[in-house]
Simulated assay, not measured.
Amino acid sequence: MTTDEELISAYLRYLVLQGRSDNTRRVYRGRLVELARLLGSGLLQATPDDIATWRAGLTVADPSVLCYAAAVKGFYAWAHSHGHIPANPAMHIPLPRQRQRLPRPISDADLEAAIDQAPARIRPWLVLAGYAGLRCCEIARLRRDGIVDTASGPALLVLGKGDKERLIPMSPYVWDHLQAAGLPRHGWVFLRRDGRPGHVPVGTVTADGNAHLRACGIRATMHQLRHRFGTSAYASSKDIRVVQELMGHSSPATTALYAAHSNADAVSAVAAIQPSETGRGARPVAGRRVS
């Protein structure tokens, strides 16, 4: 009889043939192992009611629900198509609606203050997120051979979502901070602190970076530093395609959201309908009650 571990391994090999990234396979494996532990009776014995109970028990945010559900739906679709089960019990998992939220960039003043107060280990992470637009997972997986010299200057060769590479020009500011952090001769740029081999865990970059921002009294997350890079890049270039390449977005529709913070026409339209400085609707004087 095929065990859950053997089934999961076979499914992951299938994902390799589909070209899915190492990170995607790692995440999917974790979700399937958790589901198998919850079911107890084996993955192939799951019923639609079992899957519905699993879904109802998820307490994570909507984006994580979508990720978890994708792992489970993909597994059972594969198991059904390969003859392991007669029907797909996960076909009708209810999913939250995907909402496109506008970027919420950290302010330049807050970013500069956070960098000034950051310990040496965290400072280059803030710089890479805020001034090169890297995701936390991309910071964690940055390799020394991904910091390259080009004809136009130093650049970052970043391995992004779906194992897609993109080249990001480095400003002197970013380059100086990376050098000050002490670049290794080869391998991972940011190592684990527990002595074990490998790069710093993605969760550590996220958690420690966010904790530092909170300690500085800044209500922002590491991802909002990346938002700052995207909105600033669009404000400077006014070129959606350029910003899409810099951010590593698969769809220009995602990049277009960053244009909302640089809509000069909207600013002009709102300014044109405000009351005059001398009219009855003039701005109130600070400290004076307006009746």
Results as ranks from 00 to 15, higher is better:
D110F: 07
D4Y: 07
I147W: 03
E112I: 07
V270S: 15
A120E: 12
G198L: 12
C137E: 05
A77L: 13
H80K: 11
R219L: 12
M247A: 10
G287K: 04
Q179K: 10
L156C: 01
H82E: 15
P63F: 00
R288H: 11
V60H: 00
T3K: 11
M170K: 05
Q179F: 02
F229S: 06
M91D: 13
Y258D: 00
P201T: 08
A207F: 10
A77K: 13
S268G: 11
V65T: 06
L142C: 11
S276C: 14
H223G: 08
A264D: 14
G187Y: 05
D62L: 00
A113D: 12
G130V: 07
I139G: 02
A132G: 01
F190T: 02
V200F: 05
A129D: 02
A181F: 11
P201C: 10
N263W: 12
A269K: 08
S262F: 02
A271V: 13
R13A: 15
I93N: 01
V270K: 14
P197Y: 07
V285S: 14
I8T: 10
G287F: 00
T2C: 11
T254G: 13
E112F: 11
Y131K: 03
D194N: 11
A132C: 01
G203A: 06
R144I: 06
T2M: 13
D49W: 09
A151K: 07
M170D: 02
H261F: 00
I106T: 14
N263D: 15
S262N: 05
L128D: 02
E5R: 15
A211M: 03
T2W: 11
L126E: 06
P96D: 03
K161H: 10
V127D: 01
I218G: 07
L191H: 00
R288G: 08
C67F: 13
G40R: 12
Q224S: 10
L246H: 00
V33I: 15
P124K: 08
Y14M: 13
T204C: 06
M170I: 01
S236T: 14
I218F: 03
S81F: 09
G203L: 01
M170S: 05
A56R: 05
I93S: 02
P89L: 09
W175G: 11
M91Y: 05
I93H: 01
L142E: 04
Y11N: 05
G130D: 04
V285K: 13
H186M: 13
A46W: 06
A235G: 14
G217V: 03
W54Q: 09
H199R: 13
T2E: 15
T231M: 05
A61F: 00
E5Y: 12
Q179H: 11
R214S: 08
G182Y: 09
I115P: 03
R214G: 03
M91F: 06
D50G: 03
R99K: 14
Q117W: 05
Q117G: 11
Y234L: 10
